[in-house]
Design a binder for these strands. Structure first.
Length: 195
DNA sequence: CGCCCGATGTGCT
DNA sequence: GCACATCGGGCGT
């Protein structure tokens, strides 16, 4: 029994949404088939005050989707070659989003393997840019609505394994940010998951 | 294993 | 110019 996660789920405090996304299933419809994985790592970026958030210098063409309504995909390009996927949260006008950092691949393993040729299976979706490549997610999907089917990208409910445990920690790759932002424990991981 | 570094576009200083 | 919410290859241990 699965349901597409609706907009009111995303229209909440970004840190809460980041934690609650753990254990849900990210689904990509690609060439008529489902590619999916359980979300096992997320990170919250919270408003213009958060100096690690892309919105910290105000709205630009690049981060505009973050200022839009909740439940949409903010997908940005970085380091000249990588795409990263975020879910916009909170009310329109308030820039906040959850970065999806890792998945446990579940469906479409053959296609995922093809997208990640030469990579060990354990690393297929272990990292924000790795998972977008595995599920064929790029800038063409930036701004798309994750909540209104039929779409090409959405998140579904899923049963949380009884053995799963949530581990919090500081966000990854933002050492340039000053305190207190650098140390905010807005990274969430699900450990001991067995799908 | 771990560390170093190159790839390579975009937005900001 | 430079920094960046990154990754993967190369080489040393």
């Amino acid at each position: 029994m699965t349901e597409i996660i609706a907009a009111d789920f995303y229209n909440r405090e970004v840190v809460t949404v980041a934690r609650d996304l753990l254990g849900l299933r990210l689904v990509r419809r690609w060439q008529g088939q489902r590619l999916s994985g359980v979300i096992i790592e997320t990170e919250a970026y919270r408003g213009e005050d958060d100096l690690a958030c892309h919105a910290h210098r105000g709205q630009t063409k690049r981060n505009a989707v973050m200022y839009g309504p909740p439940g949409h995909a903010y997908i940005y390009f970085t380091y000249g070659m990588h795409w990263c996927l975020n879910c916009v949260t909170g009310p329109a006008g308030y820039p906040a989003a959850v970065l999806i950092r890792a998945l446990l691949p579940v469906e479409g393993l053959e296609q995922i393997a093809a997208h990640r040729a030469g990579v060990k299976p354990a690393l297929w979706c272990a990292g924000p840019a790795r998972l977008t490549r595995a599920l064929a997610i790029d800038g063409a999907l930036n701004g798309c609505d994750l909540t209104s089917p039929p779409g090409d990208l959405w998140i579904e409910s899923a049963a949380l394994p009884a053995t799963a445990e949530i581990v919090t920690g500081p966000r990854v790759g933002i050492n340039y940010a000053p305190e207190p932002w650098r140390s905010m424990e807005w990274n969430f991981k699900l450990v001991e998951v067995h799908p």
